[in-house]
């Protein structure tokens, strides 16, 4: 049972990355463009109520890809809109600071003092 659980995380997570690679290669886009598209896709799927079932199914397979960033922000905005109406759409955005952003800022700040960039070829 736990094996299936991990397999689902692997397959769903891998599949989202595969879609990202296809967007990048066929669209001849930079990683920045590709990730932006995926984030918007995550937000839209979330609005349609399709992303939460994916998380229930795949766990980290759906929460680790960047699409979940769009999802969590959207869910925050929708939850607040439900409570407070029009104002909630905006305040909801402030309610849910993504842990991804906070962690990246903190660790990025620390790393800047520890590491220096080097030019290593593969």
């Amino acid at each position: 049972m736990i094996f299936i659980d991990f397999l689902l995380a692997f397959v769903i997570g891998g599949f989202i990355c595969l879609i990202g690679q296809l967007i990048m290669d066929f669209g001849k886009l930079t990683p920045g463009h590709t990730l932006s598209i995926l984030v918007v896709a995550g937000a839209i799927l979330s609005g349609l109520g399709l992303y939460q079932p994916l998380i229930d199914l795949a766990g980290a397979g759906a929460t680790i890809p960047i699409t979940s960033f769009g999802h969590s922000l959207t869910q925050g905005a929708i939850a607040e809109a439900q409570k407070h109406g029009w104002v909630g759409v905006l305040t909801g955005m402030f309610e849910v600071t993504s842990s991804g952003i906070s962690a990246a800022i903190v660790f990025g700040f620390i790393a800047a003092f520890i590491f220096k960039p080097k030019g290593k070829a593969n």
């Binding site: 692997f10 997570g13 891998g14 690679q21 397979g61 680790i64």
Partner: peptide, 10 residues
């Protein structure tokens, strides 16, 4: 991309 992405998610 599928395999590496899958492994990271796992």
């Amino acid at each position: 991309a599928f395999f590496v992405g899958g492994i990271i998610c796992t």
